[in-house]
Write a protein that binds this DNA or RNA. Structure first.
Lengths: 274, 274
DNA sequence: AACAGTTTTCCATATTATGGGAAGCAGTTT
DNA sequence: AAACTGCTTCCCATAATATGGAAAACTGTT
C-alpha cells in the first residue's frame, strides 16, 4: 500500500551514441522508445557471452536494469525465439529467429565467404586487412584482421563507417561504381569530405581516375598522414561492385612498387573464391 | 482540441503463437511488452523483403501498425544499427549490428558451413535432407532441402522443434550424446514422448541401442507412419555431437539396405567438410 | 504550379511498461 | 530435516512511456 516510485524513471537510456554530429540539439534522439533500446541492450549483453550463456541476474547486473524488467523483456524474446532459454541451466542464448532474420542480409554473408581470403592475405602481407561493403553513401567495414606490425594503425572496427572514397577499400568501392552513381555519391558527401577529411570533390575525382587507371585503389596518405592502403573491388555475377578488400599499413611498408604486388595478391585471392 | 482516442488501444498483438499447448490458460502470454513484440514484427517484415528493401508505408501496411508508431520504432532500430536506412531510396534493410549479434551464435553457423553438404546429399538421394542441432531438450532444425519426390512429407521447417529422439536426425543427436545426458533428456521428455508421440522411454532406449550398434540412427516409421529416415551425427573437435544430418522419405524409398547406403553417403559428405 | 503520396514532427492522452514487494524454487549448509 | 541463501517468477498500483491522430514538411509526378 506504500506505493512505489520508480528508482530512475526517465533514466537516460539514450545516452549512448550521438557522436555523428547530427542536427537536432536539444531534442532527445529517440523519444518514446525506451523499451526498444533496452531490448537491444539485452540482446547485446546476451550475445557477448553467448557461448557460456547468461542467467537472468547476470544480465540484469551487466545492463544495469532491474531484474523484473529484464525478466519481462527476455520472456518476450524467448517467445519470439530471438533468444533460447535452457530450462536446466537457466541460461539465455541467441535464438534461431534472430539468426534467421540476420541471414536474410546476404550482403553481410560476404563476411563468412571471404574470411579465409582475408586470413590468407593477412598471413602473406603481415599487414591489416579489411573487408568493406557499401552502405548508402558510406563504406561499412564488415570484417578485418589486424596486422602483425607493432604499430596499430586505424581503429576501423567492424561496423564502422566512413564516407565512400575515404580509405583504400572505400575508394575502391567508389571508383569502380557506375559513373552516374559516383556523381551522386560525391555530391552527397561533399560536405563531409571537406569537414571531416579536409578533402575536395575534385581531389577525389583525381583519385578515382588514378584508381581506374591502376585497376585498384592506391591511397598514399591522402586520408591519414603516414598511412597507405591498397583496395581491390569484388564484383558479383552481374558485374556490380559489392565489396572491397583492402590492406593498410604505415607509409614505409606500402610503397608504390609493393602496392602493385599487394593488389595482385588480393586479386588472386579473390579470384579463388569465385 | 478534440483529443484523440486510440483506434485500437490494447490491440491483441499477442495473438500470434500459443499453439505449443503451454499451461497458463487465461493469463495473456506476455503482458507488458507490446512494443517489443511490435519491434520484432517490424524486423521480420523488413527481413522478408531485405533484397529490395522496404519503405516506411509498406512496412506499416504489411504489419498493420500505424505509420507513426512504425516510424518511431524504426528510428530506434536504425540508431542502434539493427536496421540500415538508405536516405536516397528511403528503404530499410537489415543492419550490421543485428548481423553481428547473430554471428555470435556459432552453433547456427553450422548452417552455412554444411549448406553445400546438404545440397550434395539432396542431389544424390533426391530425398529431403535436414540439418538439426540440439537446443535444450529439443532438436532444432536449422536448415533443410526438400526432396524431389512428389510427396511432401514433413512440415519440418527451419526453426521447428521436436523432442530429442523423435525423428531420424533428432535420434542421432540423442543416441550419440554422453550416457548421463541421455538419461536426463529421456526423463525430461518422458511426458512429451507419451502425449505427443505415443512412445515410451523404453522404446526410445531400444532405438538408441540400435542406433549405436549401426553407427547411425535409422527410423522405420516409429514417429510417423510411412516415413523412414536416416540420421548421422556431426562431431566437433572435442568429439561432442553438435549437429546431425538426416534424410527422410516414404517407407518404400528407404528400406534397410538403402538406409545403409544413405548413411555412408552422409558420412562421407560430412567427412569432406572437416 | 497544383497535386498526390510519403515521411516526419508535434503533442494531449491513457495504455502500457515499470519495478518494488513478496512468493516460489533450487541448491547448500548446519 | 530444517534453516538459509541466492535466484527466478508472479503480482499489481502507479505514472512514465509509448501511442497515434492531426498536420506540417518533403518528394516526386502530372
Amino acid at each position: 500500500m506504500i506505493g512505489n516510485k520508480r528508482n530512475t524513471p526517465g533514466f537516460n537510456d539514450v545516452a549512448l551514441k550521438e557522436g555523428l554530429g547530427k542536427s537536432k540539439p536539444h531534442v532527445a534522439l529517440q523519444a518514446g522508445a525506451q523499451s526498444v533500446h533496452r531490448t537491444i541492450r539485452l540482446l547485446r549483453a546476451v550475445a557477448d557471452s553467448n557461448d557460456r550463456g547468461m542467467r537472468l541476474t547476470q544480465i540484469a547486473q551487466k545492463t544495469g536494469l532491474p531484474t523484473t524488467t529484464v525478466h519481462r523483456i527476455l520472456a518476450v524474446l524467448v517467445a519470439e525465439e530471438f533468444l533460447e532459454y535452457d530450462l536446466v541451466s537457466k541460461c539465455y542464448r541467441i535464438g534461431i529467429e534472430l539468426y534467421a532474420i540476420a541471414s536474410r542480409a546476404r550482403r553481410f554473408a560476404l563476411r563468412d565467404k571471404y574470411r579465409n581470403c582475408l586470413e590468407n592475405i593477412a598471413r602473406a602481407t603481415q599487414d591489416s586487412v579489411y573487408l568493406v561493403v557499401r552502405s548508402g553513401p558510406d563504406a561499412l567495414c564488415i570484417d578485418y584482421i589486424e596486422g602483425k606490425s607493432t604499430i596499430r594503425i586505424m581503429t576501423y572496427d567492424v561496423g564502422s563507417r566512413r564516407p565512400l572514397g575515404i580509405g583504400a577499400g572505400s575508394l575502391a568501392l567508389l571508383a569502380f561504381a557506375p559513373d552516374d552513381e559516383v556523381e551522386g555519391i560525391l555530391k552527397a558527401n561533399e560536405l563531409r569530405y571537406r569537414k571531416n577529411n579536409n578533402m575536395t570533390v575534385s581531389e577525389l575525382k583525381g583519385l578515382i581516375k588514378q584508381a581506374r587507371a591502376l585497376g585498384y585503389a592506391f591511397n598514399q596518405g591522402h586520408f591519414m598522414k603516414g598511412i597507405n592502403g591498397v583496395g581491390v573491388p569484388i564484383y558479383d555475377e552481374q558485374g556490380d561492385v559489392v565489396a572491397a578488400v583492402s590492406v593498410g599499413s604505415i607509409t614505409e611498408r606500402i610503397n608504390p612498387m609493393r602496392s602493385q604486388e599487394i593488389a595482385e595478391l588480393i586479386k588472386s585471392e579473390i579470384a579463388l573464391m569465385r
